[in-house]
């Protein structure tokens, strides 16, 4: 297993390089003078000149890329002109908030998605199945940012049960219960779509697995139906669903952009939106890179989880 993980980690290197290349190419497509774009429109000619030197912006693209990559590896993501602080500091600070939000959403989505999918497969064509299918359909069609607004209206405005925005109360908050209270609405909102996708796939996977020969064997052994469904079938279905959970991590991380804006969660998504409107290119670049890299790691985790479930994949 350790060898397998090591192999997968090594395989990450080209993927991460590819990520940087794509981000670099997108940024290279900036219309007009890149140095001005990076420094903002009030930059002095001297500053522009200095940045051109520093980033090698006058040199050919491949050279620029290597220079830029070298800087990244040294932890130098540049300086955000709008915040006047190093990009990496800001990005990492924001990212921890995003990780809390996206992580809890993913956990919620996995738990409820798997449960709903399994139950709905077991009760195929029954009422539970129909209700689950109905909610999945609704969940997949509701824009998360709209759902967020609705939840704020109901739970924060009308019922006054939960806070509508932020990560901690401004006065007297800061502890874990306070965090959880603030987390509940955005995490649920963010989890809805992923829950739907996971539930749908789990249902299909369960139905597929329940037709396999080894399920017939399990029944022929005289096992209880509960054991057949919730151990033999569910474990096999999980193998098929785990990579999907990994992929959903990407949608959850991306969806955080909306949810953080709606709930004013101090995460990287809200930061990106602000950075785009202030045209703080380096901040956008750093944020995108860090989130994309974390997505790659989520997928790796899903791979490892999958192969720890399925011995046939450990090679």
């Amino acid at each position: 297993m350790a060898a397998y993980i090591l192999k997968r980690l090594l395989a990450l290197v080209p993927v991460l390089l590819g990520l940087t290349l794509i981000v670099f190419l997108i940024m290279a497509a900036i219309p007009g003078d890149p140095a001005t774009a990076i420094l903002g429109s009030y930059a002095t000619p001297e500053n522009v000149e200095r940045l051109n030197q520093q980033l090698g912006l006058n040199r050919p693209l491949p050279e620029q890329y290597l220079l830029w990559l070298g800087n990244l590896l040294e932890g130098d993501f540049g300086r955000s002109y709008s915040l006047n602080r190093p990009v990496l500091d800001e990005v990492l600070e924001r990212f921890s908030a995003t990780l809390i939000l996206a992580g809890s959403a993913l956990i919620l989505a996995s738990i409820f998605g798997l449960l709903a999918g399994i139950v709905s497969a077991v009760r195929q064509f029954g009422w539970t199945d129909r209700i689950v299918t109905f909610f999945v359909l609704i969940g997949l069609s509701t824009p998360s940012f709209f759902l967020g607004l609705l939840l704020i209206l109901v739970f924060a405005v009308n019922l006054g049960l939960l806070p509508a925005s932020g990560m901690y109360a401004i006065y007297g908050g800061g502890d874990l219960p306070d965090l959880l209270r603030h987390l509940l609405l955005p995490a649920v909102t963010l989890a809805v779509v992923a829950t739907g996708v996971i539930a749908r796939l789990t249902r299909t996977a369960m139905l597929e697995v329940l037709r396999q020969d080894y399920i017939r064997t399990a029944r022929a052994k005289g096992l209880s139906e509960r054991r057949v469904v919730y151990l033999h079938a569910a474990k096999a279905a999980l193998v098929a669903v785990v990579p999907v959970i990994g992929i959903q991590a990407g949608f959850v991380l991306g969806g955080a952009v909306y949810i953080e804006t709606v709930f004013q969660w101090p995460g990287i998504g809200a930061m990106l939106v602000k950075a785009i409107s202030t045209r703080d290119i380096l901040l956008v670049q750093g944020g995108v890179l860090v989130v994309a890299a974390s997505y790659v790691l989520f997928n790796l985790a899903a791979d490892v989880a999958q192969s720890s479930l399925d011995p046939r994949l450990r090679r």
């Binding site: 993927v15 952009v257 785009i276 997505y295």
Partner: peptide, 25 residues
């Protein structure tokens, strides 16, 4: 296909944000 894989290695909407950031809202 490697190129396509690279694009898919990004969280979906994030790539869109990066593009909008470059092209402008």
């Amino acid at each position: 296909m490697r190129g396509i894989d690279m694009l898919m290695a990004f969280p979906y909407i994030l790539l869109a944000l990066a593009i909008v950031a470059v092209l402008g809202p």
